[in-house]
């Protein structure tokens, strides 16, 4: 047998709790930080702060508020329709989006790609009208039917444009509960590498940028998209210490190392050969 027995990366212990409840049912979109509708625009997010990886390479941390984009509107509409057991039409100065929570699907007037020009427009949802209905307008096998996760992934990429959602910490260790279904999603640069890392072990954004040597914007865009479909979870805190101590401020775990496999050269050649774009 010539396996990867000597491959040290195999010994990375994922910090995920595999004894927890299995992922079941459909994920609900995460609750936006503020309600999207009928609200004056929030003040602009503060100008991008700079941060650095462990090797002190500085980088900008631009932010965006998902609730102020179509991404947030679809997430909110989806949740409200789900709670009512209805479908919802999201109307406004964009192609109408019909969301069918029970089918985990949406239908966009003119097809999902007609939303591309609107996904990055801040405060567009202020002009939204939500029409809830029990009767679906479209046939369930409508050719423009798109799974909600595929649509939200795109809308999040269009809104983020390489920016990190507000309030997302660079130093919280994140894990990915599962590999995204990449054959049916937009595969952004570095997305598959991040997925491989985060399904294996918890990692902060700062560590991820450093470990995978990725442009921060690529990591932020992936985070935004995966968070939009609720795939990302903070690492579970360790059980409380037996002695009572003042709560320590959270410190990032030590930077894990990526130990390249002895076969990295060969694997990389295969990987490159299979690049499709």
């Amino acid at each position: 047998m010539d396996g990867h027995g000597a491959d040290r990366t195999r010994r990375w212990t994922p910090n995920r709790d595999t004894t927890g409840p299995p992922p079941g049912g459909r994920p609900l979109p995460p609750r936006p930080t503020e309600t999207t509708l009928a609200r004056p625009p929030a003040p602009r997010p503060s100008p991008p702060a700079t941060a650095s990886t462990h090797d002190e390479t500085p980088f900008e941390v631009p932010r965006y508020d998902p609730a102020r984009f179509l991404q947030g509107l679809v997430a909110t509409g989806w949740r409200q329709a789900e709670e009512r057991g209805q479908s919802v039409h999201l109307q406004g100065p964009w192609p109408t989006i019909a969301v069918y929570p029970s089918s985990f699907a949406a239908v966009v007037d003119g097809g999902q790609d007609s939303l591309r020009a609107y996904a990055g427009q801040q405060d567009l949802p202020r002009h939204a009208g939500l029409v809830f209905t029990r009767a679906p307008l479209y046939h369930v096998n409508h050719p423009d039917m798109v799974p909600l996760d595929i649509l939200l992934w795109k809308l999040a990429l269009g809104a983020s444009r390489g920016r990190l959602p507000l309030d997302t910490s660079l130093d919280t260790p994140w894990t990915l509960g599962e590999w995204p279904n990449f054959t049916r999603l937009i595969v952004t640069p570095g997305a598959m590498s991040i997925a491989a890392l985060w399904t294996r072990q918890a990692c902060t954004l700062r560590q991820t940028i450093h470990l995978l040597n990725l442009p921060p914007a690529d990591v932020f865009a992936f985070y935004a998209a995966a968070a939009a479909i609720d795939l990302i979870h903070p690492e579970l805190p360790p059980p409380p210490a037996p002695t009572t101590r003042p709560a320590a401020s959270p410190t990032p775990p030590p930077l894990p190392a990526i130990n390249p496999t002895p076969r990295r050269g060969l694997l990389r050649k295969v990987f490159d050969k299979l690049r499709t774009t």
Partner: peptide
């Protein structure tokens, strides 16, 4: 894509062919 994922599942750092980051300010 499926085979690429198989490879990254072995070594998540496989696709890193970029030059190391510079220390210049952004």
């Amino acid at each position: 894509l499926l085979v690429q994922a198989l490879l990254l599942n072995i070594d998540p750092g496989l696709d890193d062919t970029r030059p190391p980051p510079t220390t210049e300010p952004p």
